[in-house]
Design a binder for these strands. Structure first.
Lengths: 339, 339
DNA sequence: CTGAAAGCGCTTACAG
DNA sequence: CTGAAAGCGCTTACAG
């Protein structure tokens, strides 16, 4: 591969001068010289070596995004947002699926550090778990002497994320909407409440209930994983329990999708007999039948904002943390409670 | 950040010796010295600079995966397969969503080249399109003097992919299965037939029809995009046409999902009145109601195999191209034709 | 087994 | 406006 030295030789200038023009440094170079260098670079199909450049700058235009699983549509959309913000400026996105295993997360952070990635974005929620927090502690310490700009897109053990969404408010809105439709017995698929984000959503459920004047009933809350399987399981548990319900509110869309499927199998009609609501508004939510009522999170936008926040951090600015709005999206999976 | 020089100093050895132990070069170093170096590295929380190392080796353990859109579950699963194969060895995965725009694809290849990525995997299908092929030609030329190992996971303009699936055979199997259920009038949602992969699947449809002794009818084929919206549109077109049908076979799952949704809205029961089948077996396929009959592609495995193939290429081997099997998965969206 | 030296490709003060 | 020189952090022949 051609180097700047060869470009310089062909253009008949020093490497320093060639560097000044190809790197668009803004350093003064005569128009004629500039032209000759550009011409030589084109002729040689010169592509600057980002490694050499990064060695000087001590970081490289790479953003690592740590997600729970890129296969989860929630994270795929966030990552796409990061990518769309990053690529116009020539930054590349590295995806790191941790499966929420602290050890994997640490190993990715280490790899990112060895690559001198300029930005690290933690997209997923933190977890309240002893082993995990210990690891986190070490990781944070490591981060301190890791030059990268670090941004969080979801609640974690150490303070508020830089890009934040009102999880509790969003769920409370959905509970209010269901109450508006006449529902009084609203179950909640809470997901894994060891995750901070799931806790915020459970809190939103309680808050929504309180606002509607409905007493909280632990028998209507099911804790599982954030997955379709978790939703199916949730329906079975709810049905096994002795507390009747006319609506199921879910802490995320995957849970709601699984619940709808299970209800369908059992022969319970959605929304006629039971209303089902999700949270997140992943693309699939609009694609199923009946289409899923949910709370829209601007996932793509969250990714984009996360990248922009980090960019500004890298530029030495002190950007304000941002709260992004949620939006209620009522579709076909919810209806007035049966008379 | 600490460098090898500092580690060497603390251990009281030369940088060369320190390098030999931390890089696990296999070069002989006395046990005592090794121990001192390792201890110093640990004490200093030393993380080797991959950029400096890459500058010497002329490439870096990064694999770029070019996909159409990471938000498409098909690609998310393939990328996860690549990631799971790459991360144990310390390789990082860069995701590049091209939206099938040749210009974006080229710009990503250029960026990957500037970063000296060791491996580039083209996960998506190529496109038969004049402008695109011209660009492809240039890209190929550029690739020749780009040291990276290049692997394709889907058909493209220039020969067979290294990791291949029998698209035509898979669709033909599904057509046979539908025929087995008594269906004679089988429509086909073909997707974007400018994509080579969609062409292979359309060819499979014709082949399956021929094997079943059913005449091909162009009025039963609808070409759209590979998306839920495309599936909805397909149903409308089919209903507008004058050719009756009892089953819809689709070139991918997204089309099938959209079709099911639209049929539900119109009040046509799946599978009682119309059977619907997909292709790919993305995770959502098993999560909807009724669950989608489809042809399973081992997406995760394809990604993994793609990475392993590239690794061997990088090691100077000449691995054999691989054909991965498809598998018919009959679920609840297909049934015997109504009597 | 150990170390001094050169060099990967770039950028950036420093001189002119 | 231009160039010579040093140096980013590592590895690898080459000597010993």
């Amino acid at each position: 591969m051609t180097s700047i030295t060869e470009v310089a030789r062909l253009a008949g200038v020093s490497p320093a001068t060639a560097s000044r023009v190809v790197s668009e440094s803004g350093y003064p170079v005569s128009a004629a010289t500039r032209e000759r260098v550009l011409h030589a670079a084109r002729a040689l199909d010169y592509v600057p070596n980002a490694l050499a450049r990064g060695l000087l700058k001590s970081y490289v235009p790479i953003v690592g995004v740590i997600v729970h699983d890129i296969t989860d549509p929630y994270f795929a959309e966030v990552v796409r947002g990061v990518e769309d913000a990053a690529s116009p400026g020539g930054s590349l996105v590295i995806i790191c699926s941790s499966d929420r295993i602290p050890e994997r997360e640490n190993s990715y952070v280490r790899l990112l550090r060895s690559m001198r990635a300029g930005i690290v974005i933690f997209a997923g929620s933190g977890q309240d778990d002893a082993a995990c927090n210990e690891d986190m502690g070490k990781r944070r310490a490591a981060k301190r002497n890791f030059g990268a700009a670090v941004v969080h897109l979801s609640p974690h053990a150490f303070g508020q994320p830089e890009i934040r969404v009102d999880n509790a408010g969003g769920i409370a809105d959905m509970v209010a909407a269901l109450h508006e439709l006449g529902h009084q017995r609203i179950a909640f698929l809470a997901g894994p409440t060891s995750l901070f984000v799931a806790r915020e959503r459970l809190e939103g459920y309680r808050r929504g209930l309180a606002a509607a004047g409905i007493p909280f009933n632990e028998g209507l809350v099911v804790r599982t994983t954030f997955s379709g399987e978790g939703g199916r399981l949730g329906v079975d548990r709810l049905l096994d329990g002795d507390v009747p319900f006319t609506a199921i509110c879910s802490a995320n869309d995957l849970l709601a999708l699984g619940a709808m499927q299970r209800l369908g199998e059992i022969g319970i009609n959605v929304p006629r007999e039971v209303s089902v609501a999700g949270f997140d508004d992943i693309q699939t939510a609009a694609m199923v039948a009946p289409s899923l009522s949910t709370v829209r999170l601007p996932l793509h936008e969250i990714g984009r904002l996360g990248f922009e926040f980090a960019q500004r951090l890298l530029a030495g600015e002190q950007p304000e943390p941002k709260l992004v709005p949620t939006q209620l999206v009522m579709r076909a999976s919810t209806a007035k409670v049966a008379a």
